[in-house]
Design a protein around this nucleic acid. Structure first.
Lengths: 109, 109
DNA sequence: ATTGTAGTTCGTAAAACTACGAACAATAAT
DNA sequence: ATTATTGTTCGTAGTTTTACGAACTACAAT
């Protein structure tokens, strides 16, 4: 029933995996690329970019928000989405630190 | 029944998402970190590092192999695993290109 | 031939993911 | 009040992921 309880994974492993998982779908990559090129835009703009139903787009946006990579602010009648710059930088450092063997401990994830 | 057929996502989005997805679990991050610190090791060594059953470790290794991030070579009675350096570099460039707004097109994913 | 070692594959189960249309909320405009 | 616009949430369905123990394969050594 219960899966392994052991929480033996390190914090930075969990953190990096969380970012990576959020990026683990082409639609979400497309959303992030789009947002990072724009500063800000609304749901409809994002929806138009993607070949999937709006309900699904909304789900993907929610996942990116849960992972901390984007922010959504309600400005009736629209919802504005943008990159969460703090966590974006954090994620960037996570990945770069992960791939750079030399700069291993310089920037902790 | 059939999910959306539209393949509107771009190649580099699909490629990056594939790498990210493979990295989307703490166990797989741990494996990659371990391997990238070692040049090479066998299944048993990896298994010892992780708080999960060996069958599950084997699954995670298969996923990393499918994604191209690692290689496994049979050397009886062991199986040696190592980072796939070609694709590791490719992934690195994917992620760095993704996060670096300035260097957008310099290194294509 | 038997036993041991090293990993993979199989079968299974619960949970999470991806997708859609329909229904719903919340504001704006007629 | 009614209608239109903008997104979210609900209900549903099929697929994939994660996990485990047990069974299995393959080679080596006794």
């Amino acid at each position: 029933m219960a899966y392994t309880l052991s929480n033996d994974y390190k914090e930075d492993e969990i953190s990096l995996a969380r970012f990576a998982k959020a990026m683990g779908h082409p639609a979400r990559i497309a959303i992030l690329k789009y947002l990072s090129s724009l500063d800000e835009c609304c749901f409809g703009d994002i929806n138009k970019e993607l070949p999937i139903a709006k309900a699904t787009v909304s789900q993907h946006l929610a996942e990116l928000k849960d992972a901390g990579l984007i922010q959504g602010t309600i400005e009736p009648p629209k919802v504005n989405y943008c990159i969460d710059k703090i966590n974006w930088e954090k994620a960037k450092k996570c990945f770069i630190g992960f791939f750079d063997k030399d700069g291993l401990d310089s920037t902790r994830c």
